[in-house]
Computed example of a mutant assay.
Amino acid sequence: KFGKTESGNVWLDPRYTSPYKFYQFWLNVSDEDAERYIRIFTLLDRATVEALVEEHRQAPHLRTLQKRLAEEITCMIHSREEYEKAVEASAILFGGATSEALHRLDEQTLLQVFEGVPQFRIARAELGMPFVELCAEKTQIFPSKGECRKMIQGGGVALNKEKVADPMRPATEEDLIAGKYLLVQRGKKNYYLVIAE
Rank of each mutant, 00 (worst) to 15 (best):
D31V: 00
F25K: 02
L62Y: 01
D106E: 14
L44G: 02
F142W: 06
L159E: 01
G179F: 06
S30K: 06
E100R: 15
E88L: 15
D33S: 13
F25M: 02
I40N: 11
K4V: 15
L43P: 07
F131M: 15
T98E: 11
L134Q: 11
T139N: 03
V53M: 01
R149D: 07
A101R: 14
P143L: 10
W26N: 01
G179I: 03
G187D: 05
T139D: 03
E100G: 12
H56D: 15
T98M: 08
A70M: 02
C135S: 10
R80S: 12
E50M: 06
V10T: 11
F131G: 02
L182R: 00
R149H: 07
S30Q: 09
G95L: 08
K4G: 12
S90V: 08
P170C: 06
F2S: 03
M76V: 06
S7F: 15
K188Y: 10
L52E: 01
A165C: 09
I77V: 15
V53G: 03
A51V: 04
G155L: 10
D31M: 00
K180G: 09
M129C: 12
F22N: 12
S144P: 07
T172Q: 05
E173L: 12
S7I: 11
T74R: 02
A34Q: 04
T74E: 04
F94C: 07
D13C: 03
L93E: 11
H78Q: 02
A125G: 13
A47Q: 14
R80L: 14
L176C: 08
A59Q: 06
S144Y: 10
F41A: 12
E162D: 13
K150R: 13
A125M: 10
L193N: 00
L12K: 06
G187L: 07
G154A: 15
K1L: 13
T48L: 02
K189I: 09
P170V: 03
E173A: 13
C148Y: 03
Q153S: 13
Y23Q: 06
L44W: 02
S90P: 04
E100F: 13
M76W: 13
V184G: 03
C135P: 03
E6Y: 12
I122D: 01
L62E: 04
M168V: 11
V87I: 06
F120N: 05
I177R: 04
G155R: 10
L183N: 03
S7K: 14
W11T: 09
K4S: 14
V29F: 00
